[in-house]
């Protein structure tokens, strides 16, 4: 398959390399230094950097502007876009805005519910859902048309991705749900943080059985734990997260001052194990407010240096 867009992430995946992406959350203010600083820390160790879109419904500097800052540094951003805050006019407009800056990757999401964030009294839009946003980007790119049917002058050239949570319920539709996202136009998938490797491997086997790994690139999502407390919080409080007791115990049995190190070790071991899983095309390392640890993880997992394409 030849690349359909100028995306570096797409080229790396199509060349058969294990891709590495990571993500940075924009600041709660207008100073771009923070996002630039985070990106500088990881830029040599990843192929592309996701910029989150008001994650957990907490209002922040926008994803698009942050992506432009990265682009100006010569980096490869992945524009995350949620359907929670914008209707189809704003979504398509922002896609064109991003394309005008030659932002070549987009991740289509529905977004956390606003009740989790700083604006629980706000409206949510959901004019489209995440699958319909996938279809929208593909239509804009492949047909050169707006949803309304009019032609787009210089259509966006974006590599189109979606998220998948292999651990959410109902489990019986985890694979059909992925198939549906592929049908809607997803070309790459970044998964929810994986701690339950057996369950993830089962999901991968099922999707390989359906041949879905030949239609979409699966990037396995990993978030290193900073402490046993974080593991317990993720296990008990974060919806859709599957943290096995063994992981919590391993961290809890480690002295407090060594837990962060142990969390990183678990993350590296997971990558090494998942590298061997059929259908895994790369890794998405989400080190939440811990970006400085990404280079070490990538190196220790044997994913460095990054290929040039």
């Amino acid at each position: 398959m030849s690349a359909k867009t100028p995306s570096r992430l797409e080229k790396i995946l199509r060349a058969g390399h294990l891709a590495v992406t990571s993500e940075c959350g924009p600041p709660r203010g207008s100073d771009p230094k923070e996002i630039v600083h985070k990106a500088e820390m990881i830029k040599n160790h990843v192929d592309a950097i996701n910029i989150t879109d008001n994650q957990t419904s907490v209002c922040r500097l926008c994803s698009l502007a942050s992506c432009i800052h990265l682009k100006q540094l010569g980096l490869e951003p992945v524009l995350q876009m949620v359907t929670r805050d914008r209707n189809r006019i704003a979504l398509q407009s922002d896609i064109l805005g991003a394309a005008s800056w030659d932002i070549h990757n987009i991740l289509c999401l529905s977004g956390d519910h606003q009740s989790f964030g700083d604006s629980p009294q706000g409206q949510n839009v959901h004019d489209l859902d995440s699958l319909q946003l996938l279809q929208t980007v593909r239509k804009m790119r492949d047909e050169g048309k707006f949803l309304g049917g009019d032609d787009i002058k210089r259509p966006p050239a974006m590599f189109v991705g979606a998220a998948a949570n292999p651990f959410a319920d109902p489990f019986e539709i985890r694979v059909p749900r992925l198939a549906k996202k592929v049908k809607a136009g997803a070309e790459f998938i970044q998964t929810q943080c994986i701690y339950n490797l057996e369950k993830f491997e089962l999901w991968m086997r099922q999707l390989v059985d359906r041949g879905l790994h030949e239609q979409v690139y699966i990037l396995a999502g990993l978030t290193p734990m900073k402490s046993a407390g974080m593991a317990r919080y993720m296990k008990n409080r974060v919806p859709g997260m599957d943290v096995p007791d063994a992981v919590v115990k391993r961290l809890a049995d480690t002295p407090k001052d060594k837990q962060a190190e142990e969390g990183i070790k678990i993350c590296i071991e997971s990558i090494q194990r998942l590298k061997e899983v059929k259908g895994v095309a790369g890794f998405h390392i989400m080190a939440i407010e811990w970006e400085e640890k990404v280079p070490g993880i990538v190196e220790a997992a044997g994913l460095y240096p990054r290929p040039s394409v």
């Binding site: 859902d129 319920d169 749900r177 809607a184 919806p239």
Partner: peptide, 20 residues
């Protein structure tokens, strides 16, 4: 659905209940 999703559950569906 708290997000009026038309194509399936979000990642927050847990043991039959909504993430909110």
């Amino acid at each position: 659905c708290a997000k009026r999703l038309l194509n399936g559950p979000c990642g927050g569906s847990t043991k039959g209940h909504c993430e909110i």
